[in-house]
Amino acid sequence: MLAEIKNVSKTYETDSNKISVLDDINFSVEDNDFICIVGPSGCGKSTLLRIIVGLEKPTSGEVFFKGEVISSDNPKVAMVFQNFALFPWLTVQENIELVLESKKQGRELEKTACKYIKAVGLDGFEKVYPRELSGGMKQRVGFARALAVEPVLLCMDEPFSSLDALTSQNLKDELLMLWADANMPPDAVIMVTHNVEEAVYMSNRIIILSPRPGKVVADLKIELERPRNRKDPEFYRWVDKVYSLIV
C-alpha cells in the first residue's frame, strides 16, 4: 500500500456558519493505481487532492504516505496544476532545476532536467520563458517538472481543463505512454477531473464523490484494455455507468 486516506473530513468556518466540504473520506492507493477523482462541481475534489498532497490540513482524519503522516515537503509526492503554476521569471530548464534543487536532488541537475524536458517532447525549448510557450507546451513543462523529482505518487489537479480539446487529447496520449513506460516515475497517479470521458479513458480506478459535502459514492475498477478506444461501445457503457453514479 502506497498511501492511505483515513476518515478525512474538512469544514470551512466563515463568520456565520460552518461549511462541510468533505465528509469522512476513506480509500487507499496501491502501486500502479491510476486513480481519477470525479464529482459534480463544488464537491471538494480539489480540496481532497490538496489534503492528499499536504497543502491543506484536514479538519479531522489523516493521510498516510508509506506509513507516515503526509507533509507537503515530501519529495516522493509531486503535483501538476490546472493553470501550470510555472515561475514566469525562470526559463523552462530553470523551472525544473529549481524544484530539483529544493527537493535535495542537487546532483546532475542539468542532466536530469534535460532528460525530462526531452521526455515530454520539449527539447530545444530549454532556454525559453514560459510566456513564450502555448498552453499545451506550458503544461508539458508542468509534467516535466513534476516527473523530474522522480515522485512515487503524482497528483494532478484538472491538468487538461485549461487546454483546448485537440491539445489536451495529444497530451493525454503522451502522458499515458509515459505512464506505460516502466522506467518512468511515478508508481501511482491521482488525478482530479470533472470530465467523465477523460476519467474513463485514462484511469484504472475511478472514485466518485457526492455533491457537497463530498463523500465517496463509488470506487470503480475500470477493466478496459489499453490503449482504449473512445468509439468502443464498451467504453460508453463505463462512461454511462459513471454518469449515473454522479447524479
Binding site: R50, V53, G54, L55, S72, D73, P75, V77, A78, M79, F81, Q82, N83, F84, A85, L86, F87, L98, V99, S102, K103, R145, V149
Partner: peptide, 14 residues
C-alpha cells in the same frame, strides 16, 4: 497567484 504559492509549497521551496 495561489497556484504559484502552492507549487512552491508542494515542491518544498522554503
Amino acid at each position: 497567484p495561489k497556484e504559484l504559492v502552492e507549487a512552491a509549497d508542494s515542491f518544498g521551496l522554503h
